[in-house]
């Protein structure tokens, strides 16, 4: 399969001497939904900046769909769209004009640009706002406008730098659905995010970047399988007797109250076995949830091991 992005030994040192990227290498397959995670200042936005040519690299190479961004400037730029972290459109222009102008930059004839403009503004729920000045939009609408703008030339690769930062839960979910839909339609997506739940929900592959180095680059499934233990919180409808124990070496219990218990499962123990023991003890389970986000646990452990 073709590589959507191939980054080799990419380094970036800013004029003030700050080494933002220390020779990272990264590959993203075509059609992938890829997460680039990392704490603030890790190098995520610099990586995106270099791919989108807004940041001049110090050394290394970047290829988009097999073409070098330095030698095939125009071809590679046609292949991707970028949704930046901060709002970067004119606040004095109308919503429709912003998208139409972007279409013009990519050489789309006016009629086609108008069709695409309507298509993406409708998809992102902004069509009713098309004649309003962009400064009157809410924060969530501004982010959706940037997505519509990035898609108007129908790129094969969409790069999103923290697209749901500061967006309410309902809107975030609707953006997830939209991104999943366009990924299912064949657009490769690279996403940086602080919401680890977002990466876990959406992405198939993941790279964790810390202090300018890639500390993990694998599939989401493999990464989550690395977890040694998981903590579940079980809510029960029947009372949990004090001193209740499952009698297993690889499962420990902590009773929170008479209808709530924390179960720490490790060593490949199946949650079904745990449920079975609860049923045997005639304790009916009403609901279950993870105590912490699984990816968050892994993310923190990867960063700790990089220190």
């Amino acid at each position: 399969m073709t590589l959507a992005i191939s980054i080799q030994n990419l380094a970036k040192t800013y004029a003030n001497g700050f080494e933002a990227l220390k020779g990272i290498s990264l590959e993203v397959q075509e059609g992938d939904f890829f997460a680039l995670l990392g704490p603030n200042g890790a190098g995520k936005s610099t990586t995106i900046g270099v791919i989108s040519t807004l940041v001049n690299k110090t050394s290394g190479s970047v290829e988009v769909f097999g073409k070098n961004v330095d030698t095939h400037v125009y071809e590679t730029k046609l292949d991707f769209g970028v949704v930046p972290q901060e709002v970067n459109f004119s606040l004095f222009e109308k919503v429709r004009d912003i998208v139409m102008t972007q279409a013009g930059y990519y050489g789309l004839p006016r009629k086609l640009a108008e069709q695409r403009c309507e298509k993406y503004l409708r998809k992102l729920g902004l069509w009713e706002k098309r004649d309003e000045r962009s400064r009157t939009l809410s924060g969530g609408m501004k982010r959706r406008l940037m997505i519509a703008r990035a898609l108007v030339h129908e790129p094969k690769l969409l790069i999103l730098d923290e697209p749901t930062a500061g967006v309410d839960i309902e809107l975030r979910r609707s953006m997830w659905e939209f991104l999943t839909e366009i990924n299912n339609n064949g657009i490769t997506i690279i996403l940086t995010t602080h919401y680890l739940e977002e990466a876990e929900q959406l992405c198939r592959n993941i790279a964790i970047i810390d202090a300018g180095k890639i500390v993990e680059n694998t599939s989401m499934r493999k990464l989550l399988n690395e977890l040694d233990s998981q903590v579940y919180i079980l809510e029960t409808t029947s009372r949990i007797p004090s001193g209740f124990d499952l009698g297993l070496d690889n499962a420990s219990l902590e009773i929170v109250d008479e209808n709530c218990i924390e179960v720490t499962v490790s060593g490949g123990l199946s949650i079904n076995e745990v449920f079975g023991l609860f049923t045997k003890a005639e304790i009916k389970i009403d609901s279950m949830r993870n105590k912490t986000n699984r990816l968050e646990q892994l993310f923190l452990s990867k960063l700790e091991s990089n220190d």
Binding site: L54, N88, Y106, R149
Partner: peptide, 18 residues
């Protein structure tokens, strides 16, 4: 300069316009 100030110049810089 106002395109620079509002960062809307990035729209142009990431596009394939020579």
């Amino acid at each position: 300069f106002s395109h620079k100030f509002q960062h809307s110049i990035e729209e142009l810089l990431v596009s394939p316009v020579p």
